[in-house]
Nucleic acid binder design. Sequence first.
RNA 1: GGUCCUGUGGCCGAGUGGCUAGGCAGAGCUCUGCAAAAGCUUCCACAGCGGUUCGAAUCCGCUCGGGACCUCCA
Length: 504
Amino acid sequence: MAPLKVYNSLTRQKEVFTPINAPYVGMYVCGPTVSGESHLGHARPFITFDVVFRYLQHLGYKVRYVRNITDAGHFEEEGREAEDKIATKAILEKLEPMELVQKYTNMFHWAMQQFNNLPPSIEPTATGHIVEQIEMIKQIIADGYAYEANGSVYFNVEKYNTDFSKKGQPYGILSGRNLEDQIDTTRELDNQDEKQNKSDFALWKKAPPEHIMRWQSPWGEGFPGWHIECSAMSSKYLGKKFDIHGGGMDLQFPHHECEIAQSTVCNHVAPANYWLHNNMITINGKKMGKSYNNVIKLSELFAGTHPILEQAYAPNTVRFFILQSHYRGTLDFSNEALIAADKAAKRLWEAYEWLSKLQVSDVASTPSDIELDKKVNVLVDDFAVFMSDDFSTPKVLANMFELVPIINGIKDKHTASTALSNSTLLHLQRSLKIYLEDIFGLVAPSAANTAVLDGVLQLLIEVRSQAKASKDFVTSDKIRNQLMALGIQLKDEKDGSVSYSVSN
RNA sequence: GGUCCUGUGGCCGAGUGGCUAGGCAGAGCUCUGCAAAAGCUUCCACAGCGGUUCGAAUCCGCUCGGGACCUCCA
């Protein structure tokens, strides 16, 4: 089988994935800041890396997937607002900071479950790792790459860049920018006088009196800087050097760049071998983000309550929509695209469901259509080829859609069931299950059918069949149309049976 | 201003120099009591202009357009 290749942002090319300690794989993904509700844009990295997590496990790796919760609060803008985001909102909403953190953490977990994302192996919180962060800062100071100023601690980027450039690890290695360029472009900020250089970043920040979240440290009461938590938690749970670090492209600079600098100083080794970055979800061509005021919260998306939404979109539809594009490309949101994804997902799933119920003998058989049999095998075998080529989920889905007419052809008896050999049918059944459910994490698009609902529907179907048999089309159409109005679609199958699908 | 990405049919989106991406929508046909569903067929696009090549959506250059990062951001 083709080896797994991933696009490494660090080297800007696809590389064969070789774990440090196979079969163990360590993966760290930057999690949410729980100072507000997650939006559609946040869905992308967590679904993307959930599929990465699932695929690595499918390949047999034992993966420890660490995804943090940022609950300590970072600055809105350094110096401009002397309170962290969580503290600010807590006052407005008259909540304790930790109550707010808990609320949004719960909502985040709810959204992740809706998406059918597997929980990470470890989900550490920043506030739970203050000690580790302080220890790390102490060591960076001891090594001479950070300095204290007025109760805050800053990382000395210029010294780091000078020293580590000699080792081929300049500051900016990940994002591809050099320090000289940045000096002119860094914006003027307050409290600059505390820093020796504009490009220096905070490791520890002195807490102003109104700041609620604060911890005791060797430098006084304060709270950790923007980037140190990820370094502290990734090295604690995955080691000084681990395999994969993931996150959104917008975190590449400065967040991930700073992580690399901190960890490299502390651990004397660069933290991750492979850096994977997902691209943004856009809306009308613009990145969806707080600063653009164009976010659709996940709860709004699922309920269809945001003004620009024409309807509600099920989490599974959103997941499918995201998987239909490659994770490194931008993905443009629109109602039309989501509706298309919804229909497509349903068609695919219905074919899959029918096939999975098909009883296939495991007795060896010869296909009556050798060409078709071969085509099916190629299409199925390419699932793994595409996934191993930097997680090409859209190509896998394209192959699946080529299989849909073949499956439906057998279902409708346009194609003989003996056209494919038993082994091919079993291969198809098994592979679709593995890829759709286990790796892509998709679920049945329609609402859960309870036994009661099914019983009622079977009764209605029977009554309608009797009406049809006696040519009472008024009655039969009434049943069909009224069920349709309720979102239940009856389907007259070729063999005379009747099936149904429930939307939403 | 600096760094980088990008421009594919009505819409969304794959595309590794030569072979149909795929989805949704539209049109026709088959099936059907009529529909729906399903199947078949159809719609064959690559911003523009040059260049390289036997051959370019795919490589190079220029022009125009869009976007990201440089500041919290998935």
